[in-house]
């Protein structure tokens, strides 16, 4: 029962977020970059719903604008990672032999770094910025996608219908696409959902340490970063941006868990 309430909450929250991200331009009460020195560090009011920061910028508008960047990276990075990782993982499992050995060893190597550290490494190499941030985060997520898709594909590879498909003359790429992928889609969808939450968190973390979106452009991470520097002026920017991150990541995790319960044939739905 409690599960259902959480799931409902997560779905409602994420739908709302989606609307805000898409129609943000029409909803924003103020220009997120407009500074107003007569209205610094204000508390919530009818004009400034969530107060203002130390430049007198509207916190609500900034969080809204920041959500676009955070959500874009949060969706794009796992998607890129999923496409690259699943391609490599299923190919390795399907062909076996040297292909698999090389892919597995490279995965092990990437896995031995913490994803965040890997992200920092890539940004350090490529320089900060939104595009590089997306690349860094997808790079950090690729090994987990390789590992999961390879493991799932290995078990499906043993199934009779894969041999049957080959025996009917189906080429390798088509066998992977039509017979292997549909049968391992469940766990991959679950993992992608959960990693979207993680990607948002990683974006926030990297932006927080100054490697992500550069000011004045707002992202949830850097709103927290500059909010913390001015926490005694006004705690509201850091608080609300942090809350947005927490709720979003939590919602994606709840959604991922719910999907797992429904898609995993080995788990009976309560």
């Amino acid at each position: 029962m409690l599960d259902r309430i959480f799931i409902t909450f997560a779905i409602i929250f994420l739908s709302m977020l989606a609307i805000l991200v898409v129609f943000g331009d029409f909803i924003q009460p103020h220009d997120p970059l407009l500074q107003n020195f007569r209205a610094r560090d204000q508390g919530p009011s009818a004009t400034y719903w969530l107060g203002t920061d130390d430049f007198g910028r509207d916190v609500f508008s900034r969080i809204l604008e920041g959500s676009r960047l955070s959500m874009t990276i949060g969706l794009v990075a796992p998607l890129i990672a999923a496409i690259v990782g699943i391609t490599m993982g299923t190919t390795a499992a399907y062909f076996g032999g040297w292909t698999e050995r090389i892919v597995s060893r490279v995965t092990d190597m990437m896995m031995s770094f913490d994803p965040l550290l890997l992200g920092v490494l890539v940004v350090a190499l490529l320089g900060p910025g939104i595009v590089n941030l997306s690349i860094a985060i997808s790079f950090a997520l690729i090994p987990s996608f390789i590992r999961l898709s390879r493991a799932s594909a290995l078990s499906v590879r043993q199934e009779g219908y894969v041999d049957a498909a080959i025996a009917m003359g189906r080429p390798s790429y088509s066998t992977i696409l039509r017979h292997v992928l549909p049968n391992i889609a469940g766990p991959l969808v679950v993992m992608t959902t959960i990693w979207i939450g993680s990607a948002i968190r990683m974006e926030a973390t990297l932006s927080f340490i100054g490697l992500g979106a550069q000011p004045p452009a707002p992202s949830w991470g850097n709103i927290v970063r500059y909010g913390v520097q001015n926490i005694f002026g006004s705690p509201l920017p850091a608080l609300f941006a942090g809350l947005a991150i927490t709720l979003t990541v939590l919602s994606f995790n709840i959604l991922g868990d719910a999907l797992r319960d429904r898609l995993d044939p080995d788990r009976t739905v309560r």
């Binding site: 199934e159 009779g160 219908y161 041999d163 049957a164 498909a165 080959i166 025996a167 009917m168 003359g169 189906r170 080429p171 039509r178 017979h179 549909p182 049968n183």
Partner: peptide, 25 residues
């Protein structure tokens, strides 16, 4: 060339009809 031959001129059926068909197709 093998792919052109398999299923076309030589075919095979397997022991386990339960697993030799793709469950999601």
């Amino acid at each position: 060339e093998l792919e052109g031959l398999r299923g076309n001129e030589i075919s095979m059926i397997f022991q386990e009809p339960m697993t030799a068909l793709n469950p999601v197709m």
